[in-house]
Write a protein that binds this DNA or RNA. Sequence first.
DNA 1: AACTATTTGTTCGTATGTATG
DNA 2: GCATACATACGAACAAATAGT
Lengths: 232, 232
Amino acid sequence: MTRVYLDIARELEEEVRGQYKAGDYLPSESKLASRFSVNRHTVRRAVDELVFSGIIERQQGRGNMVVSQPYDYPLHAGARFTDNLVEQGSMPSSVVVSRALVEPSENIARLFALASGKKVIKLRTLRKVDGMPCSVIDHYLADSSWWPVVKYFEYGSLHHFLKENVGVHLSRHSTRVRAALPSKTDCRLLQLSSKTPLLIFKTTNVREGTSEIVEFSSSHTRSDFVEIVLEH
Amino acid sequence: MTRVYLDIARELEEEVRGQYKAGDYLPSESKLASRFSVNRHTVRRAVDELVFSGIIERQQGRGNMVVSQPYDYPLHAGARFTDNLVEQGSMPSSVVVSRALVEPSENIARLFALASGKKVIKLRTLRKVDGMPCSVIDHYLADSSWWPVVKYFEYGSLHHFLKENVGVHLSRHSTRVRAALPSKTDCRLLQLSSKTPLLIFKTTNVREGTSEIVEFSSSHTRSDFVEIVLEH
DNA sequence: AACTATTTGTTCGTATGTATG
DNA sequence: GCATACATACGAACAAATAGT
């Protein structure tokens, strides 16, 4: 009768470490409950243990996702990738995950000095290193007339794509850095535990030679094994 | 009906911060349950929140004890200071909190290309904004012969002090950025909750005009209301 | 756009186990 | 042993988010 949930937690943890990879989902709590012949509360308590130890991330309406790499990555301190800041906007190895013409937020409309009602292009790209998603970047483009072209951007360097296809050369204007814990979306896209802090770089890019801000990007990078290098 | 436990958690937290001191006990869960007219599970869930945030500790058979009384910051969320990266090494408003000649770690000895047995100077400075500690910086100086002079550095810009008093001009060599949750020491010095992520900048500085690394610094900045601006 | 099925989240009720004094 | 307080477990119901039809 006593402490069933700890046994289940141990069993689940072992299975996760042995047979799951980051991004996989556990069976639903109902299925686990019937499998272990316990009440759903009890498996839930068991899963709580894994959530607390950072192996599992709960996603309401979706399921319980595995967020750590059991035996893939040697996450011991010191083994850390480095990424160059200046490539953040033009990662050659990033892939578009979503793309839309959207109503800009108030901040972005002000930044771009947009007339009200005008839409902006929003691109979300995901960058992986050795198959592991390590940063999500949201790009906002001020000029929605680029949409017919940008619609066909799939992967690679966005800045290079823009130069080739719309003849715009972007140059970096300012960058702000902060750290924060991941949002639910960050957790999902980066297969991350909500306890892993992110580095957030907000960059504005201008049309080269002018002071016209044409792109704003916000990159969210997992900071447990990626370190950003600044050039001086 | 929904999320009653969060309201109760907020209420309890407020009372704890206002009227309890470390070592006090909350009323029993049954009493709280009847006071808030909810099931005991619900107050339990509420207390869980306080346990998770580290201000309550459960003691089976005894009660729920207040273990810390976190500082109450007069700062509303959203008010965010910005700090310029290039001043990180030479904050005019920082104060020395500790200072010593220490045995360097392996990494630092290698970085400085030091002979074994040589010591390095370690300075820890604290920078406050409006009275609130917002970053701790550990400076390591390769040349221990500066000690008699550095012993008298108390506050202000370290780089300026070194230029004036030992005739060394430092110039930035490389910077690496990451984010992490605070250590216990960080929490203490910055009066932080362990859930607030920190920005960590590791910078190496060389003697100007040479490639001789003479200073390494690691700055830990609270990132909930400080944002770092990069210049391009 | 509306509806449905699935999955996690919250709350109630009840009962029993376990630690403390 | 007894009373009290926290800990675990069962069952039921509904809320809220998500995904797909």
